[in-house]
Design a protein around this nucleic acid. Structure first.
Lengths: 240, 240
DNA sequence: AAGTGGTCTAGACCACGCC
DNA sequence: GCGTGGTCTAGACCACTTT
């Protein structure tokens, strides 16, 4: 409608998009089956799927396993620089968040990780993998790497809880600096499998480096998000 | 290879991906024609294009007009919170940036914009549209809205230059706060056309609200980026 | 067992860029 | 005018989910 784009897939995209945005389909409700939509819009299945893919990229619909297409719930607003727990954030926005610890290992830092964490080649780090969901829908897989030197007795902590609270209350890290990067990416195994998306699906990668008051890296963190699940936010004061 | 994914498109994707990452294809070099790649990998054109689309989502290749597929140049690192000019940023990273002013208009703020900028319904704002390129490749289209009340004589300024410098030197705004949001999006006309991407291509949307020392919104800014052109960065100090 | 999306083929025609 | 990618069709079979 607003587009002067006269292709078949664009027409289908606009039609479904309007149905969603005018509230005819509620959050997490399924669309009709692909073959039914084909007939409804009189297009072939590949054209229909091109339209659905664009709606997926727009963050309006998502797929679940092989069971169908569903209307996306609203996005989570997330502020990675502020050291407030993911759980508090999500709850404040009316979501029900959960965290599942997938694995904990002590590993030797490889070349890449050593560079990222400014370690020498012989260091070992504790690697955490966690999966976080809102309202039962997994939205991010995160890998956290702790510099062992700064986290004695880490294995005794409950690592499915807030890392921030642990940093503050148990390890007394109060003054920290963060360095964050955000970029578009593709999700593959194993992240794709855990998030319930297709291999090669669109994602958002958020990396975070945490330094203590002395400038040493105490933690490195990589979050792989469903692209349709979040808006990254940041508040800052600046002197020009 | 690292994937246990045995689909044809995945094999093609991995093969091309390795060629690029092992440096057999340089930045901005074209791939072979789609029909040639089909023959080379013994797959149909739609399978081949599925592989190419994923490589595009991974930020490894991009398309230019209808002329072919090319290897992506490295990404620009960009820190929207820091009030350093885009041009300085790009130059420091070895790029050649350019800015083109597309339009300047005084408009009445509609409902949406009034809400975003906390204006009453009768306010007028100055709307700027600019297109920014690095090394000749357009990477973002931005809309900037100035609250007129804080920018007397704006029409006399050169609006293709740094807005930051203008804020500081001409309008003497020194203490500011920013509020930024970043999310995945789809690019449509007119942004898609200006960026030389297909309608419905993947993008990254960066929105910024600028407030003066009194907390009033003086500027609102929406940047639509090619998804493969940037890594958003942020540095912050925090007290827990 | 039936229904769903996921993968894949072998064509076709078109709009546009480039020569 | 030829070659490119962009759109589109009408099938097919498979893996998985749901009933």
């Amino acid at each position: 409608m607003s587009d002067n784009n006269s292709f078949a897939y664009a027409a289908v995209r606009e039609a479904i998009s309007e149905q969603i945005q005018h509230g005819k389909l509620a959050e997490n409700q399924p669309l009709a089956a692909e073959r039914d939509l084909c007939e409804q819009f009189q297009v072939s299945r590949s054209t229909l799927r091109q339209a659905l893919s664009q709606l997926e990229n727009m963050g309006l619909i998502y797929r679940k396993n092989r069971s169908g297409w569903y209307v996306c719930p609203r996005k989570l607003r997330y502020e990675p620089t502020r050291h407030v727990s993911f759980l508090d954030y999500a709850v404040a926005q009316g979501f029900t968040p959960t965290t599942r610890l997938l694995s904990v290992q002590k590993i030797k830092a490889g070349a890449k990780l050593s560079q990222l964490m400014e370690l020498d080649g012989r260091s070992t780090v504790t690697a955490l993998t966690r999966l976080r969901a809102v309202d039962g829908r997994p939205v991010l897989m995160e890998q956290i790497y702790f510099n062992q030197r700064h986290f004695p007795g880490l294995e005794k902590q409950d690592l499915s809880l807030s890392i921030n609270a642990m940093l503050k209350n148990h390890y007394h890290h109060h003054a920290l600096s963060t360095q964050i990067s955000i970029e578009s990416c593709c999700l593959f195994t194993p992240a794709a499998a855990h998030l319930g998306v297709n291999d090669g699906a669109l994602g958002l990668k958020v990396q975070r480096t945490l330094r203590n008051a002395e400038g040493e890296i105490i933690e490195f963190d990589e979050e792989l998000w469903r692209h349709d699940a979040l808006v990254v936010e940041n508040h800052a004061h600046i002197q020009m």
